[in-house]
Design a protein around this nucleic acid. Sequence first.
DNA 1: GTAATTTTGTTGTAAATACAACAAAAATGT
DNA 2: ACATTTTTGTTGTATTTACAACAAAATTAC
Lengths: 150, 150
Amino acid sequence: MKDILREIGMIARALDSISNIEFKEFDLTKGQYLYLVRICEHPGIIQEKLAGIIKVDRTTAARAIKKLEIQGFIEKRDDEDNKKIKKLYPTQKGMQVYPFLKREGEHSNKVALDGFSEQEAETIFHLLQRVRKNIEGDWESVKKGNKRDY
Amino acid sequence: MKDILREIGMIARALDSISNIEFKEFDLTKGQYLYLVRICEHPGIIQEKLAGIIKVDRTTAARAIKKLEIQGFIEKRDDEDNKKIKKLYPTQKGMQVYPFLKREGEHSNKVALDGFSEQEAETIFHLLQRVRKNIEGDWESVKKGNKRDY
DNA sequence: GTAATTTTGTTGTAAATACAACAAAAATGT
DNA sequence: ACATTTTTGTTGTATTTACAACAAAATTAC
């Protein structure tokens, strides 16, 4: 069976590396763009869900988000019904940078899919979605301390 | 155009996270498995090339490799013709863990491709290779300090 | 042949990442 | 209704990661 994991790892590290360098311009340090983009697209999302979407440790997300708040890119708001959760919203400052983050992502996407037909782009997208769904369960399980058998 | 970058990022972080947890058993800390696997498969490779293959910063690779050496998983050997480079080789200890790392990778790959036909697995592999080649140039360029226009 | 550039490797420093452990609110079970 | 478990968030600590700056060998340019 073909080893797709390494290709995925290489691509992910390369693109993440590029983004981190490019977003320094907006005073965003390593990883922060991941959270900010999602908060802009899902205003009101809570930290725990965000960590789950991004696939990063809860405590890592907590600190990244705290920093975004201190820097004024986002704000935490208490929920009326649930005293435990804190909903996350972009501030004006956050919304102002969002278009640049989006543009950069679109550019990288275009570079990544250079030479792809519409049909091929469609295909890889759907296949990747299936892969992602396939591994989500293992990730959650292993994070909780369960062991995989193999 | 479909956003494949996020899917790739999610998959990569999830699988890396799983691997890091599972390889603690062998006293491998975060990221180390990446280097060790490649050194086992490309004995004699030098640090600089390894960083390029993995797509990680040169100095990050340097420290990860130094630690692998201290722990006795690999060894650095001087080259006779070139006094600058140091070739990397797995030690017996390194070669002993390699099969476990390989097995884990194969398992994750299998999980990732669950429900895929042989043809589909083949397809995603080739499409991913093309993506990887597409972005390699940008990565090297941006790492060297060049700016992308978009 | 030698000057300029590139390659390869290292170290100082700052920051992100993740594990462990804790706390409190909420949801669930009985 | 209350006890138990799960969810959500935080903080202490150790480690990885990466940028900047440096050094030395090798390669390239002239």
